[in-house]
Every structure is written in C-alpha cells, then in structure tokens.
Write a protein that binds this DNA or RNA. Structure first.
Lengths: 342, 342
DNA sequence: TATGATACTTAACACGTGTTAGTAACGTTA
DNA sequence: TAACGTTACTAACACGTGTTAAGTATCATA
C-alpha cells in the first residue's frame, strides 16, 4: 500500500471526475463553479485514498516551494553559542504556524564562495533568512540587489537590506550607568568575535560611546577579542587582565563569553563581583542560574527570529513592510555579577 | 537578467545539441557515447548562461530530492539545551560534504499528531533523522515499519529501528566509582526530563545499576525530575534537597540541569563541591569554564549527529549498514565539582 | 421551438527535468 | 555489395501537479 503512490489521477477516478476538478476542489475554495456535492465526493475520495499531493509537482506547476532558506553564516558557531538556537526557534515557530518549511544551510570553509546559488538559482526556496551576515559578503549584496526576498538577522548596512537587528544603546547605556554608579572607572571589554565582525564591533563602539557620556574612555588596550566560545573568552580575559591589571569591571561580548570571563577571574584569584564586576549580553536561558547570577543585557532572540520570519513572509506575499530595517530594544537585567568597585 | 530563467533547453540551443544531450553531459559522466568535443561545448554553453537546473524538475523526473528531513521531537528544547545544536552541527557537516540539503522541522503542541506525513508522503525528503524520539510515538513506529529510511538520534527500542545512541554505562560507572571513592553514600539525581522520556529514564536507571554494584541504592525519593532548562533543574534540586537533606552528591541529568543544581545548592547555602558534589552529563563546550568547572560525562554529540547522517546516507544509497543500532561510548571528565563527602 | 444565459466540468497545455528506445552516419568485415 | 557493429546523438515519454479556454448540459425566456 505504501509502495503505490496515490496521485490526483487516482482520486479523480475514484470520485468520478476529472483531475482538474480534484485540483480545484483541494486548492481553490473560492472557485464557486463547483457543486457542493462534487466537492464532498472529491474530498471523501482523497481522504479514503490518503492522497498527499507530490510537492515537486506542485513546485513545478505553481512556482512556489513553500520553503524558506536559512543560512548560518558561520556554522561552527551553532554548537558553541546559545544565541542562534534561540533565533532558530523563533523562526521555526512562525513557519510552523504558516505551514512553511525551513531549509537549513550551514556555511563553513568547505562551502563555496556563493552558498546562495545552490538554493536560489535552483529554485529550492521562495525566500531567505541570513543569520549573522558579514558585511564583506559580496554574493549576499548582489542577492539583495537582485530583489530576491532576503531578510537579515543582523545587518550588513546595505541601504536596500531587509533586516531585524538590535539597537543596543538603551541596554548598554543602562549597564554603563550601573557600573559608573557603583564607582567603576577603569572598565574593559572582551568582544565576542574578532574585529571585522560587524555585530561584535558594534557592541564595542556602543560601550565606548556610553562611557564617553560619563567622561570615561576605554583605550584599545582595555579591549581584547574572543572567538565565540567560553574558552576563547577565558584566554582573552587572561590576556586583558595581564595587560590592564587595574580594571575593575568587564563587559563581556555575550553571555557565553561572560562564562569565560568569570572563569578567568577565578583563575587569577579575583572574586566576582567583589574584585571584578562582569556584565554579559544576550541573557541566555541559563544565565540567571550561573554562579554568580549574571547581570546582562537582555535580548529577545526568539522574537528576533520570529520577526525576521514574519517580515520575510510579508515580502513573499508581496505585502509592504512597515520598515525595511527593524530594530528591537534591549534592557539591562540586574543580577549578582556587579558590585561596588574595590 | 534575473527575470528570465535559463532552462536546459536554452543551453541545448546555444550548444547546438538536443536537450537530452545536455542532461547526459551534465549528469552522467559515465555515458561514454558522447564525444569530448560535444561535452566541452555543452559545458561552456551552460557556464556562459549560468545554467542551474530547476530542482523541482529534477525531483519530479528523478524521484530523488537530495534532501533529508530533520525532526526535533520537542522544538521547545532547541533554545534551552546545548545538546541539540551540537547534533545539528554534526549532521550539517556531513550533509554539506555530500551536497545534501537539510529540511528542519520542529515539533510542538501546534503540530499535528503526525508530522511525518507532511514531509514523507509529499515526497519532500529522501530520508529522515529524528532527534529525541519518544517511544509512544505511534506514527514514528509505523514509519519505521514502512521501511522508509529513518535514523533516530536516541532510541524508541523498536527492533527494526536504525539509531545512533550512547551506552552510558562506562561513563556512569566511572562517575559512580569516583563518588564512592570520595566517600559518598547518599547520592541523588535530577533527571533532565519527566518520567516517560526514554533517554532521561535510561540515565536514571543506569545510575541506579551502577550504585547497586557498590551495594548502594537510590530510592525514588532521591530522584527528582526537571524539564530541560537550568531553571527547572534549580527548582527540582530545591525540592530534592528539602526532601532528602542528607544527600552529599547529585547526578544532574545533563550539564544544563547541572547549572540549576549548582545554583540551587548555592541558594541553600551549600558549597559545591565542599558540601555537595555534582556530576553532569554531556560536557557542553562551556562546562569546563563554569564555576566550579563541571565534572561530567563527556558525550561527543557532534559525532553522534555525523554518524546518524552517515548512516542515513548509506541507507539512501542502498548500501548495507554494519549495525542497525550504533552505540557510542562516553567517558568521565574529572574537573572541580566533586570532592570528598562532608 | 429557438435563444441565450447559467452552472458545472474537462481537455489541453505548462512547468523543467531524467531516461530509454531508436535513428542516422560511418566504417568494417564477409 | 551487403550485412553488421559502433559511435553520436535525439525524439518521445514520464514524473505529478496548477490553470485556463472551451465545452456540455440545464433551464428560463421570448
């Protein structure tokens, strides 16, 4: 029974109508030119046979795949950082509601220079979401300019891009004020990725600007660079604290990095928050349960994913979007990893 | 230029051959009945036009989608636990090498009872990987019995299932010996999921058996159940320690739960590892950098995903697999969260 | 009864590919 | 020369669907 696939032809024969009628009944509920009785007969036949339209046939005929692509610009981050899985969850939720499918494509050194071709040019997908895009990604720029529906989670600062991003200002200025109020003056930072990675750079310069508001500076020597993992955060922090031993507070590029920062502090005999205050970024689900509970800037990554998916769906439907670039707010969540400067 | 799609017909015309020849040149390098010169001409024409075969057309004609499905049995876990992203990474790596695509499908309360239909019956995928399958999943059993290529990451104890799983015995018995050697006699556990969840149950009974080897028991009262998140681990641990205040060591169902366990210990004024020893499970990338560094049973989740993907690919190719059920070993990683019993 | 108008249904085409049976040209052998 | 294999290619079909122009009853109206 599973061996013989059921086609619309079988349904048509069983219901005593033509194949066209079957297609009309099943897809176009608005076509009035069909009697209720025929409708019912076709529906019953389809149900009895367990008919499921072949998707390849549909794609070919209709031109729509009912599938969106999802490209993770650096696949290696996926297992290391807690952020992407949340975005992914948000995207998945929306697509499930809408009955869309998600084609997941990771990208790494083994991928060619243009991972979009394989999805777009072969018409496997109707639209695309790109996570953590890099601004030097030329094929991506070309894709955006070609008007193919693309939504970025992140940004490459292209005027025509559609994107969902965070304006970190509110959260970071609140975090900075907290530290200043607690008496901190020498504040450092461990970025979550190397210079050139837009999102990471943006956080560093946002912190710089916020500090300037209070008449403070963060010299280049007070910044070190990690590489997504807690381990890299650990090593970066050790370097940083050796170079700048009198720092009393550290911004971690994100919560995963913050784990490494706190670990390095412990290894160097500094207590958090007594000797060193630490502020994270992201507010991952477990961050409230770390030791000490992490003070961090909360980002609703699930919502970010959901909004990106909804924006893409609007694009696919040809509906206008309110704004090409959406920016979400974030806010400080005070917990236990910050205290008065020593 | 992007508006007019290039078909094999265009390539054929440009190369001065028939469409069939184009298809033969591009897909069947073994077909000797083609002159080198024609081959070259077709290839050049295809390159010049930027020809990419339409995937729907290929699927329909060839019956192969070059896509595998990936079902996450409980989508809500994705953003919470660090395990699935790792498996996902392993699967992605293998598929990227092989040029296969991955269709990601989350499952939650809004999904119907049979999420497989939408992928399998519509022929969207050639094979399927199911993460964290539940043994009461009847449609899944039916799918396995239908001989459709399915590989489980986990197990539902079906004799015909193909699966990649862990034999936790080695790691857990080593962990148990460690605790016993340290003088612990009253040992509890916080499972990572409610009873009925196979993988979680398996770990509980594995720990029970290991303890029995040493003449120890773990009564039902010494086990509590969390629900994947660190937060749930925190609450479960509080319940557990209130019920059994004289426990000196706790097995956490996984590392995420361990974060909650340690947090609850701190909240109850117990120091880890001084007053309470904690052992995790998974060895997530950040676990070595927690405070204290987590002693845990290491599982290579990336490899698990990669093996599952490779097994599925063998099934798709019709090649025999060495064993329907593969079991990977795991080993204890000693760090700082265990110490002598108080 | 002829004439439209209406309600319903279908034949026929389109989507773009992979594959098989078959043809034409060409040389080779009996 | 006729029979025969070999090489290089192609016509024609198959895959399963969505859609539109055209078709056939049915029925009311003049």
């Amino acid at each position: 029974m599973a061996s013989k696939r059921v086609t619309s032809h079988d349904v048509a024969r069983r219901a005593g109508v033509s194949r066209a009628t079957v297609s009309l009944v099943l897809n176009r509920s608005d076509a009035v030119a069909l009697s209720q009785e025929t409708r019912e007969r076709v529906r019953r036949a389809a149900a009895e046979l367990g008919y499921r339209p072949n998707s390849a046939g549909r794609m070919l005929a209709s031109g729509s795949t009912e599938t969106i692509g999802l490209i993770i610009s650096d696949a290696a981050i996926l297992p290391i950082d807690g952020f992407i899985p949340q975005v992914l969850h948000g995207i998945g939720q929306v697509n499930r509601e809408r009955g869309l499918h998600v084609l997941l494509e990771g990208r790494d050194s083994s991928s060619g220079p243009n991972p979009y071709e394989a999805l777009v040019d072969t018409r496997r997908i109707d639209g695309l979401i790109v996570l953590n895009p890099r601004s030097d990604d030329e094929p991506l720029r070309a894709l955006i300019e070609s008007e193919f529906p693309v939504v970025l989670v992140g940004s490459i600062r292209h005027p025509k891009e559609h994107s969902v991003n965070f304006s970190s200002r509110a959260g970071i200025s609140a975090a900075t004020r907290l530290l200043v109020d607690l008496g901190h003056r020498r504040i450092g930072m461990v970025a979550f990725a190397a210079p050139g990675f837009v999102a990471a750079d943006a956080r560093v310069s946002a912190v710089r600007r916020a500090l300037q508001t209070h008449g403070l500076t963060m010299p280049d020597d007070a910044v070190d660079y990690a590489d997504f993992s807690a381990e890299s955060g650990y090593h970066a922090t050790k370097r940083l604290l050796q170079r700048q031993p009198d720092l009393t507070a550290i911004f971690a590029g994100n919560d995963t990095i913050a784990i490494g920062v706190m670990s390095a502090a412990a290894a160097l005999g500094r207590r958090v928050p007594g000797d060193l205050s630490v502020i994270g970024f992201d507010d991952l689900p477990f961050s409230a349960w770390l030791n000490p509970a992490l003070t961090t800037v909360h980002i609703d990554a699930v919502q970010q994913g959901a909004l990106a998916a909804e924006m893409l769906i609007r694009l696919l439907a040809g509906k206008p979007v309110d704004a090409r670039q959406v920016r979400l707010d974030c806010e400080l969540v005070e917990r236990k990893s910050c205290a008065g400067a020593p």
